[in-house]
Design a protein around this nucleic acid. Sequence first.
DNA 1: CCGCCATGTTTACACTGTAAAGTTTACACT
DNA 2: AGTGTAAACTTTACAGTGTAAACATGGCGG
Lengths: 195, 195
Amino acid sequence: MTRNGGSETRAAILEEARRVLLDQGYTSLSMRSLAAAIGCTPTTIYLYFKNKDSLIHTLIDEGMNMLHGRLIQALEESSEGCSVERMRALAGAYFDFGLENQEYYEVMFMLHPQHMDRYPAAKYRSARRNLELFAEQLPEGPSQPVVGIQIWSALHGTISLLIAQRIDNKFSRDELRDLAIEQAVATVAARPIEN
Amino acid sequence: MTRNGGSETRAAILEEARRVLLDQGYTSLSMRSLAAAIGCTPTTIYLYFKNKDSLIHTLIDEGMNMLHGRLIQALEESSEGCSVERMRALAGAYFDFGLENQEYYEVMFMLHPQHMDRYPAAKYRSARRNLELFAEQLPEGPSQPVVGIQIWSALHGTISLLIAQRIDNKFSRDELRDLAIEQAVATVAARPIEN
DNA sequence: CCGCCATGTTTACACTGTAAAGTTTACACT
DNA sequence: AGTGTAAACTTTACAGTGTAAACATGGCGG
């Protein structure tokens, strides 16, 4: 392969990895096929990424930033509403992001760490921002982060089962979406108002 | 390896597979190491199981039956209670099963089908029994299976994130358990009584 | 006794991630 | 211009994966 100044190769790797991830999913993303697609040898990739996991980590990070954009946008669009309405918008945006970016969602939230190096602390923080948005919509403010986690977890449950195709097709996605969002909303509505 | 009458080998395969699954997790479960552990060649396993996935399927089936036992027991112990109390017992039992049998839970509900052959229809039915138990606890009876699915999904969300170690350790498991269960209970309590 | 079938092994293929060592290119500096 | 060095990339190799095809062997029924 022609020398092309390093960072171009790195960009090509990421671009192709992203493409394969979206088209064929995580399992099809192999270092060798990746290398073949961009016209270099497998080991070249190791010049830019410690290993496959750290390549995945940067994809996760991309996904987290995409998600953050979507969530922030949803919050801005509903900023005039009460906490219930903001949560409805947030949950809806989260749900839609998950189903519209299934392959991203999978590497972001469904991959087991045993198959994966520990997620680096710096990137972990950027991921946590997304989750904190849920607690921040509670009427009492972000003082109960665990409740935010619970609301997020419940949403994640439905999304992950849909992605994993563990829910019978006879149940409509829209109905499941509504139920999941309303459950999140109900949890907010049940909180005491304190701020 | 000595001929030992077939079903013994099959039993040994399953026993070792179960052991590895519980000890080292799904990723460590390889046909070759499995064969080495029970003292046969990898291909011998293919006499008893079509492929790795179908071996996993029978483990999933085992897990589903274990889970069913736990859920039925919880329901029996709470049979005198109202639908809210029965759901509390059911959700608690489901949650505990998940965390006490993480490796089973993972293959049962968290593995992506792309990595896996389609779950056989017959076994799928036995899995569905477990989910139907949730809808059956609704005050209006099992007429709204999708609500049962939603309650189950939300529980699954918390469990799967805990198993995947995607929830910060600073959040106590007990508190998350309580919140998840109460969210399930609240969804039941919010239903109209019709039967 | 003989043939068949269940039970198993041997061998092989096409993959996977990744480490070590060697090679080529580009550029800075004397 | 010539040389040193570092970046970029390849070659080769290892150890592992699932699994298919062909071959061997034991025991049992006719």
